[in-house]
Amino acid sequence: MSKAVIVGGGIGGLATAIAFMRRGWEVEVLERSTRIEEVGAGLSLWPNAIRALDALGLGEAVRRQAREQGAAGIRGSRGNWLSRTDTDAVRVRYGNPVMMHRADLLDILRRAIPEYAVRKGISVTTAEVDGTVVHSAGTSTGDVVVGADGIHSVVRRAVCGLIEPRYSGYTAWRVIVTPAEPVADMGESWGSGERFGYSALPDGRVYCFATADMAADTRGGGLIELRTRFGSWHEPIPALLAAADETAILKHDLYDLPPLKTYTAGRIALIGDAAHAMTPNLGQGACQALEDAVVLAHVATRDDDLTRYDSQRRPRTQMIVKRSRLIGSVGQLSSPLAVLARNALLRSTPPSVQFKSLARVLDWECC
């Protein structure tokens, strides 16, 4: 029986384990943490990700625990509409985007894998192109080694050497709140060097995220700063911040990866953030990791040449990284003239044009 050693037990790593198991492979997941869990953050799953989950046999389980996304678009800080998403057209052409808690998806994935296949508390030191993985508990060997160990991947060094992530120029806050009044829609609001977004979760809670231009590693920036920056923006933003708990706020600088020359070397293949970490502006980070999982298992089962995985996945994912980075740069514009020009362009762009621009991202079919 062929074996896949998967370094990393996050969404991408677990999805890859399931994809290989469904094709009759033995899997061994090496996870550095002693517990596999996700903290408070929402997750958008676009139709391309739902198709990947269907290929893993988990689409229905996810739909049962997710909420279909409602009306969406981009507003100014005062609530004036700059752009509306044609959600009906997206549903008709591609299927229903959904929103769920990241922890719920992780739990669905985890329950699909035998307990013995996931080894927790294992720190990987090196990976070799011959399929050997050296770690804190000894060594593991696989016909395929999957680097699913995130933006600071250890496995990636064996594929491309040391690659430094790129700072986007802005930081992000995330928090899940229970508002006093229900929120049914979703969307983003763009200001000057700042953005605020929110989306309803299935249980009545609301996932909120915000960004602001800031030097990397800037300390502080909790609830007081969020209310100072966004408390005078349009509703329901002030009400959402009023419901926020200081201890639940997550703050992280946002990074992505420069384009790698390859995602594979010998028996090693990179997936998810280890291969193509991206800013969250398109909501495609986890979606692309799910696609990776399906394609990699398909390629590895058909032949020993993993370069076909690279040729299928690298152009697509690097296009999405580039597009996401560009959207973030536009959303974070702070010059008054640039903001005016950006807002005017958004208002003058028909929803049909925006819909067509989604085609290259959403129009993906499983192999």
Rank of each mutant, 00 (worst) to 15 (best):
D86Y: 09
T87M: 12
D88C: 04
V90N: 01
V90S: 01
R93V: 00
Y94A: 01
G95S: 03
G95I: 11
P97R: 04
P97F: 06
V98W: 08
V98E: 05
M99Y: 10
M99T: 05
M100R: 11
M100H: 11
M100G: 08
H101N: 03
R102V: 08
R102N: 07
A103G: 04
L106S: 03
D107R: 15
I108P: 06
I108T: 08
L109T: 00
R111P: 03
I113S: 01
I113H: 05
E115W: 06
E115N: 10
Y116Q: 12
Y116I: 06
Y116D: 09
K120R: 15
K120H: 08
K120D: 01
V124R: 03
V124Y: 05
T125Y: 15
T125H: 15
T126Q: 09
T126D: 13
T126W: 13
A127I: 00
V129W: 02
V129Q: 08
V129L: 09
D130H: 00
D130C: 07
G131D: 03
G131Y: 01
T132K: 11
V133H: 02
V134Q: 11
V134T: 14
S136P: 10
S140M: 06
G142N: 07
G142M: 00
D143P: 01
D143Q: 03
V144Q: 00
V144H: 00
G147N: 07
G147H: 06
G147E: 02
A148K: 00
D149L: 02
D149C: 08
D149V: 00
G150A: 15
G150M: 14
I151H: 09
H152R: 15
H152N: 14
S153E: 03
S153Y: 07
V154Q: 01
V154N: 05
V155E: 00
R156L: 13
R156F: 12
R157S: 08
G161F: 12
L162D: 14
L162E: 13
I163S: 02
E164H: 13
P165A: 13
R166I: 11
Y167E: 04
S168D: 02
G169H: 10
G169E: 04
G169C: 04
G169R: 06
Y170R: 05
T171L: 09
A172I: 10
A172H: 07
W173E: 13
W173P: 03
W173D: 09
R174E: 07
R174M: 08
V175A: 07
